[in-house]
Design a protein around this nucleic acid. Structure first.
Lengths: 228, 228
DNA sequence: CGGTTGCGATACGAGAGCGTATCGATAGTT
DNA sequence: AACTATCGATACGCTCTCGTATCGCAACCG
């Protein structure tokens, strides 16, 4: 019943999956005598992924860093504690890497209209195909910035800020092209859009975010509440 | 160095403070033979308050229910564990009461313009005189609705929803008076305003919420981002 | 004064979690 | 086959927390 996305069922399948590991480090000059592969049994890539996945899932479900337990991670990833401690020295380091794994390339924006780009960005924040994980991690890490400053700092720098910068650029472009009022406060608008999406996505007991939420949100923000 | 607001320094002052306790329960029919006061030493009202205060503070600082420890509450409130367990059977009940203590009467709104009422409401959410506690509790309880449903349910019903209802009424009134567009989605607008304020207030490392944040936020939402 | 109850301090057993150590088995290289 | 590193499982000592029990003292009533 474990909801792990890619739980490994037995060790037999492990060999085939990890066989490619040895071929990878050919990225050197090429003339080297291929002495890169260390001896002994190679580490399981599948275990890596399962551990990171389990860590993120617990980070969301258990409500923060305090709720993540090495033993729970091990159980959920179907992995021994040894396998975790061989890779990371402690819980903090594990969570740090798990957060870093959320880093993604900047979303491809159509760039046709500011309106559509904002909708696309809003979607990636928390409406994306039921991916509650991203916004859940964001909520929990963000809410504990003062308790775990290092975690917050690196998550913010590596994962959050790049996205924010994309949105900031879209808003600035909108001002230049005349699609947005020249006197708007870009940062304030970002709090508006991001806050609304994150808050709605994290809401409990009101159902999933409707598909058209991002569209209606951006349109409402653009038109304003007052008649004119 | 304990940051508890009203830490008691010694037991001597306790007697004077709690002396009024005996006079309180005259709220019965009055014709009763005044047998209301139980024998023995009365419970310290000051301890009550200190415990609730410490619980809320830890709920914010430690990032959720998991971070609240009875021993930490006792230490912070300068109180013995006994004193806590004499009042509440367990941690859950304590936190439940602590959350209930955040219930406040509905804010008095000027009712002159929808704009001013919205600003006033936004202020009470998280900008109010540096009261990070309220929004901190909101963030942590809200973010763990699925982990502690009962906590979430009662906090939502007793503390959050009444405030939301006030804002909803203001928005509806604005539509009726023509101050707001008739086609806005009231719930969507509430996500916008509440989400923005809460998110900004909870932001770490960007300084306190500026005094005019609520004003600029509401004005931006009213006018809209697009020129017209 | 005796009776009753609250108070803080302290100790307790139980359980959870951390990080380490050890085990036999496994999966690779040479 | 010999060698080496990883695998899951398990046990360990340690600390923290829970909720209970037991102190002696303090407060209030008669």
């Amino acid at each position: 019943m474990s909801p792990v996305t890619d739980a490994l069922t037995d060790a037999a399948t492990d060999a085939a999956t990890d066989a490619a590991t040895g071929a990878v480090p050919d990225s050197m000059t090429g003339a080297r005598p291929a002495a890169t592969r260390p001896p002994g049994r190679p580490r399981s890539e599948r275990a890596d992924k399962a551990i990171i996945d389990a860590t993120l899932a617990l980070l969301v479900e258990e409500g923060g860093v305090a709720g993540v337990t090495i033993e729970a991670v091990a159980a959920r990833a179907c992995v021994g504690k040894t396998t975790i401690y061989r890779r990371w020295p402690n819980k903090e380091a594990l969570i740090l890497d798990a957060l870093a794994s959320l880093k993604e390339p900047d979303p491809e924006l159509a760039g046709v209209s500011v309106r559509d780009d904002l909708v696309a960005l809003a979607r990636t924040l928390g409406v994306e195909k039921g991916d509650r994980r991203r916004v859940g991690v964001y909520w929990n890490v963000f809410g504990n910035g003062d308790k775990h400053p290092e975690l917050y700092r690196r998550f913010s720098r590596d994962v959050v800020e790049p996205r924010r910068e994309v949105m900031r650029a879209v808003l600035r472009r909108g001002i230049e092209t005349g699609e947005l009022r020249p006197d708007i406060d870009v940062d304030l608008v970002m709090w508006l859009i991001i806050g609304a999406v994150v808050h709605r996505a994290k809401a409990y007991g009101v159902g999933p975010v409707p598909d058209d939420f991002a569209d209606r949100l951006v349109d409402t923000a653009l038109r304003g509440l007052a008649p004119h």
